[in-house]
């Protein structure tokens, strides 16, 4: 299968032109392997790959590569996330080799939330390289077989390289160029920040398509169903770079007692339908945070089951 860059399931699904559907799973704040297996179990058969977050929001959790391996054991394909906050270029390159050697085939490159958000705000951060340079690093190791110092890698890691994009963060006009930059640096696929402002995302995609970015890279639209009005308000006010239109909050409020979560899912389903038709969108990345058990239902109702096997 040398034509593939990594041969990961996600790569095959996308290359075959299927509408991809990926999920997400946060490792436990402890060694609770059973809980991780249980959460992962819900996603089995519903998604093409599962993002395994790396100390997300700067809260200490089981390491993402270890949790990725547990997912592999469960028969799921992990998308191993790596942030630049906690590792220098030595640790980054050695973790890339380790992850690949143990069977990981997708990797998502991120800068990482600043530690002041998390549960160890007094920590020192690293940021030796940034997310753009991390993409470049993985690609260099894979395609050139070279470390950052130009030394040869003894058996290069063949990873499918992912990156994130936030179409909503300011400065808006620059965001599509930053996406282009990530693709030029080596991103094979992109997963966007959770989308709620559909008009703004449509405009972002229009620009991306105009630049032909969708032909160079697979762009997956980020979806997180709202569970409650409180969650929507929190996302709108507390999460940096998140754009939650008032109309959505109004709609959730209007759903009435006990029906908000269902309304949130309905909105997500409408979004997925729209994304299926939207030019340049190659799939959906569903981040059902601590709502993994709802994924089978959402996937079913979104009409994305069964997942293709390529």
């Amino acid at each position: 299968m040398s034509e593939y860059k990594s041969g990961s399931n996600l790569e095959k699904v996308l290359r075959a032109g299927h509408f991809a559907f990926t999920g997400e799973c946060g490792p436990p704040q402890g060694a609770n392997v059973e809980h991780l297996r249980e959460k992962a179990g819900h996603l089995k058969g519903c998604v093409d790959a599962v993002n395994v977050t790396d100390n997300q929001t700067a809260v200490v959790r089981m390491s993402s590569w270890a949790a990725s391996l547990i997912l592999l054991e469960e028969g799921l394909e992990p998308n191993f996330q790596m942030v630049c906050r906690d590792r220098n270029r030595l640790a980054i390159q050695s973790d890339i080799l380790g992850a690949y050697s143990l069977g990981i085939r997708n990797m998502l490159c991120l800068s990482g939330d600043h530690q002041s958000f998390g549960n160890h705000p007094e920590a020192k951060n690293v940021f030796d390289i940034d997310s753009m340079q991390l993409i470049y690093t993985v690609k260099k190791m894979r395609d050139e077989g070279k470390f950052l110092n130009e030394q040869e890698v003894d058996v290069p890691p063949r990873l499918f390289v992912g990156a994130a994009s936030n179409p909503f963060a300011e400065p808006f006009d620059f965001r599509v160029y930053r996406l282009a930059k990530k693709i030029a640096a080596g991103a094979d696929f992109i997963q966007t920040q959770c989308i709620y402002n559909m008009d703004k995302f449509r405009e972002f995609m229009r620009r991306a398509v105009d630049m032909g970015l969708h032909e160079k890279c697979h762009i997956l639209a980020g979806v997180t169903p709202m569970k409650s009005v409180g969650m929507a308000l929190y996302m709108a006010k507390q999460v940096p770079g998140m754009d939650v239109p008032d109309s959505l909050i109004k709609r959730l409020r209007g759903a009435g007692k006990g029906k908000v979560a269902e309304e949130g899912i309905k909105f997500a389903l409408e979004q997925i339908e729209t994304f299926k038709e939207m030019e340049g969108v190659a799939g959906v990345h569903l981040m059902a945070i601590e709502w993994e058990h709802k994924v089978p239902e959402i996937a079913e109702r979104a009409g994305v089951l069964p997942r293709p096997s390529v």
């Binding site: 630049c84 958000f117 963060a169 300011e170 400065p171 930059k181 770079g241």
Partner: peptide, 20 residues
């Protein structure tokens, strides 16, 4: 806050940094 050479990160918020 992250010494990014290829910024801005996704946390940039109406001209303010994600940290505050």
């Amino acid at each position: 806050s992250k010494s990014l050479l290829n910024g801005p990160c996704g946390g940039s918020n109406n001209g303010k940094c994600e940290i505050s």
